[in-house]
Design a protein around this nucleic acid. Sequence first.
DNA 1: GTAAAGTTTGACATCGATGTCAATGTCAAG
DNA 2: CTTGACATTGACATCGATGTCAAACTTTAC
Lengths: 132, 132
Amino acid sequence: MKIGELAERTGVAPRLVRYYEQQGLLTAPRAANGYRDYGEEHVERVRRVAGLVQAGLPTRVVKVLIEMEDAAALARPTCPRQVAEVLAVELGGIEDRIACLTRSRDTIRDVLQRTEHAALLSERAARTAAPA
Amino acid sequence: MKIGELAERTGVAPRLVRYYEQQGLLTAPRAANGYRDYGEEHVERVRRVAGLVQAGLPTRVVKVLIEMEDAAALARPTCPRQVAEVLAVELGGIEDRIACLTRSRDTIRDVLQRTEHAALLSERAARTAAPA
DNA sequence: GTAAAGTTTGACATCGATGTCAATGTCAAG
DNA sequence: CTTGACATTGACATCGATGTCAAACTTTAC
């Protein structure tokens, strides 16, 4: 599939897809005509990358993260002490973010509940459970 | 306490504290000399605001979020349907972020475990449990 | 074949968050 | 009183993520 379709399916603008590729977060096979030619696996990848970026991680960090995820699928990932320390720091930052967001999530849920707008809470779950 | 001390205790640069205030995320009582004069409650507040901003939320969203947290402490928060819908959308974005970050967190933990650097995992917990 | 729509690259613009600097004022220590 | 550290405001700079536009090429539809 071409970049336009990929953009549509991921909700990520073509411009950004190219940007992420430029930052080394993505690879794009090329067709004979020079067009980027994506497969299903790229849809997942783009969603993941965009998600992390939106979660406040700089692309530089996202890069090592997804490289690690790729590597983690293989056996015995190598990881020198110094790298591990950097990872531990990033882990801390990520945990902080999760804690912050979780708290806000709970607050919003609570407010929606108490204001009788709980119906809005199920909409999303319904959508993700039975996608169009 | 003055802005310098606040900055030290929160790890947020004075410049940013002023910026957050300018964006309406913070209020700062003034001393007779015009200096901002913070109390303990502001330390918490600044940490919270900075955390949310680092988690990728625009200040504009952080603003309504913390205002809501303040209001949620009171009884019967008012919340017209239209506002509730906006909240539901934000909630969705936040849940997405949490999911993304959680996945990365698990991956990093997994890698640290499997590379025998699990010791780094406990350091943080130890620090937050027994702060200096 | 021609026109419209999509893609390529590259440059430039924007926007939000943050850094830095300058000019001035306040305060604490010597 | 003077010096040095910190605060104030406002302007300007930077940086990363995105948007936008232009010129050239490809593909699709007619």
